[in-house]
């Protein structure tokens, strides 16, 4: 039983971080029909902003995190929208997808070139305490990661449903033309979406880097897992991305312990295939009709 508790908790802690990245996929899809294949690199980059703050500028951890947040909002939010999405969007989805793949490569290679190819230690933001609960070792870091991720996603959900700006963002996502007629500043709402995605990526980066270590290639795994999570949960629902992320995290752990460590990475892909075959809109997603 203790083993099972630990498997579930570790899976949820990892899965909650996947969920943060997966939410980014759904947000951008809803706001601008953008599938951002650089999402993994968006989670990788803020960790290096933090390290630059600490090692180059000599700042403490939290001022460096604040610096990373500002830089991420600027680079991954404003610049991404203005320099990549806006010029490419009129050409259709496919050129934009290719542009985000290129952006991902650019970010990865830039970090490799300017910071280094080797993994870097990243300071933990939670105490390294371990608690014994019903025979299971529960790390404060896991609890902290789970709590912060849930708070971030819960806060986002509340913001979107309970505030005027949030409802305007939803209206923009559902039908930008009608939203504009109703007086919503559509461009500003889309910009907010990109900024929120950048902020979530920063939170995910700061949470996951103490475990994964900061490395230029981290985005490859993260991006793929988050993409699968978003599809499994439902690409057009934030709560779907949350469920998808948590599910992938738990399934990964359960399959590694109880089925086969050798085939653990195949399990999320099998789940993805099953979802595409039997419920293509995802577990919590809604069907979308499009005229082509």
């Amino acid at each position: 039983m203790a083993e099972f508790i630990q498997i579930i908790l570790s899976g949820l802690a990892a899965g909650s971080i996947y969920a943060l990245a997966a939410v980014g996929f759904t947000l951008l899809w809803q706001a601008s029909q953008t599938i951002n294949f650089a999402q993994g690199e968006f989670v990788m980059l803020p960790a290096f902003f933090v390290l630059v703050g600490m090692t180059v500028l000599g700042l403490g951890l939290w001022p460096s995190v604040a610096l990373a947040l500002v830089l991420s909002l600027l680079v991954l939010g404003v610049m991404f929208k203005k320099l990549v999405v806006e010029p490419m969007l009129p050409h259709g989805t496919l050129p934009l997808v290719i542009a985000t793949i290129a952006l991902g490569l650019l970010l990865k290679e830039s970090v490799k070139e300017f910071y280094g190819a080797t993994a870097q230690p990243f300071p933990p933001i939670f105490p390294q305490e371990v608690y014994q609960v019903a025979g299971a070792s529960i790390a404060a870091q896991d609890i902290g990661n789970l709590a912060v991720s849930m708070l971030a996603i819960g806060g986002l959900q509340l913001f979107l449903t309970r505030t005027r700006t949030g409802r305007c963002m939803q209206a923009t996502a559902q039908n930008p033309a009608v939203a504009e007629i109703l007086g919503v500043n559509v461009k500003r709402m889309v910009m907010y979406t990109f900024l929120i995605n950048a902020a979530l990526a920063t939170v995910a980066s700061v949470l996951i880097s103490p475990i994964y270590l900061a490395k230029f290639s981290n985005g490859e795994t993260l991006g793929l897992v988050a993409f699968i999570a978003a599809i499994v949960g439902g690409f057009n629902q934030i709560r779907g991305a949350l469920v998808g992320g948590l599910l992938i995290g738990v399934i990964d752990n359960i399959s590694a312990v109880y089925i086969s460590a050798q085939y653990r990475s195949a399990m999320p892909l099998l789940l993805l295939i099953a979802i595409i075959l039997f419920r293509p809109q995802g577990l919590l997603g809604t069907s979308e009709g499009r005229s082509v």
């Binding site: 083993e3 630990q6 498997i7 570790s10 899976g11 990892a14 475990i211 994964y212 290639s217 981290n218 795994t221 990964d252 752990n253 590694a256 312990v257 460590a261 050798q262 653990r264 990475s265």
Partner: peptide
């Protein structure tokens, strides 16, 4: 006997298996 993947990032399941 626990094999792991190249560049694996999450070792929680592997550690748990070894520990128990």
């Amino acid at each position: 006997d626990i094999p792991t993947e190249q560049a694996q990032a999450d070792f929680s399941a592997d550690v748990l298996k070894a520990k128990n």
